[in-house]
């Protein structure tokens, strides 16, 4: 099961927060000017939209047969986060290389049902306060919905900014994460499809 708030706090306190150089990232909105926090000035629009990963070399298509996949059925698969993460994060993805806006009525309905089922399963894990379900779609065109479990008991980690703690908190240890992924996949498979971990 996920760590209790006390266990999580003890681990974070022992290892310290990741204070990566976020301000240097292009999409990070803040910077320090003369010792004060300021929003970065907005740069003028570019001539072209920011490119997404397309069908050629799609990392989502390529990830299906890998050990990141924890569950699949005929149309969808669920994967663990693609890097070590401070929050429990899963992706619901179509097997077909399609964008969210390209889902036909049947796949859209199935997506809605799996969103609710997966959200419910993750949210029922002990010490999970809330599970965010998010479609950004700015990095890759292949549909990938984020499921982000917010830990219970930390008023600082709440709301849409809570997602940032994915990179601020030290990664969840594999011995904690592995059994949780197994449990989630097992429960998903009681609704349909096959657990792969």
């Amino acid at each position: 099961m996920p760590e209790s708030p006390e266990a999580l706090y003890a681990r974070v306190t022992a290892s310290g927060l990741n204070r990566t150089d976020v301000a240097a990232e292009a999409t990070f909105p803040w910077q320090v000017v003369d010792g004060t926090l300021e929003p970065k000035p907005l740069a003028p629009p570019a001539a072209e939209p920011v490119a997404r990963t397309g069908a050629d070399g799609c990392p989502i298509c390529a990830s299906l047969p890998t050990e990141r996949t924890i569950w699949e059925n005929d149309d969808f698969f669920v994967s663990r986060m693609f890097r070590p993460s401070g929050l429990l994060i899963l992706f619901l993805q179509t097997k077909q290389h399609i964008d969210f806006t390209e889902l036909d009525d049947d796949l859209a309905a199935a997506t809605g049902r799996w969103e609710v089922i997966l959200c419910r399963i993750v949210e029922r894990l002990p010490h999970v306060a809330q599970t965010y379900v998010i479609r950004f779609g700015s990095g890759a065109e292949h549909l990938h919905l984020w499921f982000v479990a917010r830990p219970d008991g930390f008023p600082q980690i709440r709301g849409s900014l809570g997602l940032e703690y994915d990179e601020i908190l030290p990664p969840i240890p594999e011995e904690v994460l592995g059994p949780d992924l197994h449990e989630i996949a097992r429960e998903l498979a009681t609704h349909g499809g096959r657990a792969r971990v």
Binding site: T27, F28, L42, V50, F136, S138, L161, L163, E164
Partner: peptide, 13 residues
């Protein structure tokens, strides 16, 4: 569209 800074999870800020 076309603002490279307003993209992804931080766009909401």
């Amino acid at each position: 569209e076309r603002f490279a800074q307003i993209i992804g999870s931080l766009a909401v800020e």
